[in-house]
Simulated assay, not measured.
Amino acid sequence: MSLIATPADIHAGYLEWLMDAGADPHTTDNCGRTLLHVFAETSTHAVDLSSLSRRAIEAGVHPAQLDDFGQTALHSAASNEWCSAELIQLLVRHCTGFDPFTLKNCDGHTPIAVAKACGYHRVAHLIASACMPKTSA
């Protein structure tokens, strides 16, 4: 991190420091959002929070946990135009027990519908691509 840091850099560094210091990764904010929701909302090409997200998942934070608005971390990623492909793939890979094509938030929207409604077609494509079964050639 340089001396001149963006808020996202500071945010990522602070969250990493908290995790290293033993903060409970299962803590939620006043809207029921987990660390994975926050990482999905703030991850960018420049500040990819996939490694911190992986650590949270390894600590037992489930990507399919709903916040108070019925949104998973994947819904949060869908509303972030700059969410990294690696983080989206990580969330989809670990979201066992639900189908990102049919899981709806309290407004009745799937993660792909959220991305499309925001005009984030790249993110909608990343989610759909991550959900497709891999075939061997």
Rank of each mutant, 00 (worst) to 15 (best):
A77L: 05
S50N: 11
S76F: 01
M19Q: 13
L52Y: 08
V38C: 10
Y14E: 13
V61D: 01
V38P: 05
L52G: 10
R33A: 09
E41P: 03
A46K: 04
H37I: 02
Y14R: 15
P63R: 06
H75S: 08
L18W: 12
R54V: 08
S79I: 03
I57Q: 04
A59D: 03
A46T: 11
W17I: 12
P25G: 09
D68K: 07
L49W: 05
S84A: 14
L49Q: 10
R55M: 08
P63G: 04
V47K: 06
N80K: 05
V47D: 06
E41H: 07
S51Q: 15
C31H: 10
A21H: 15
G60V: 00
M19G: 15
G32R: 08
M19V: 04
T27W: 02
H75I: 05
R54C: 08
L74P: 11
W82L: 02
W17P: 10
T44P: 08
S51R: 12
C83D: 11
H37A: 06
I57T: 03
H37L: 01
Q65A: 09
Y14S: 15
E58R: 09
V47H: 12
W82A: 13
D67C: 02
G60M: 00
F69E: 11
V47G: 08
N30Y: 03
R54S: 12
T44Q: 06
L36P: 14
W82G: 13
S79V: 00
S43D: 05
A78R: 09
L74F: 11
D48K: 08
V38L: 13
P63M: 01
P25E: 02
N80F: 04
T28M: 01
A73W: 06
A77S: 12
H45S: 08
A64Q: 08
Y14C: 15
E81A: 11
L15H: 14
W82M: 11
E16R: 15
R33L: 07
I57C: 01
S43A: 04
T42W: 00
H37E: 07
A56C: 06
P25A: 05
E81H: 12
L49A: 07
A46D: 12
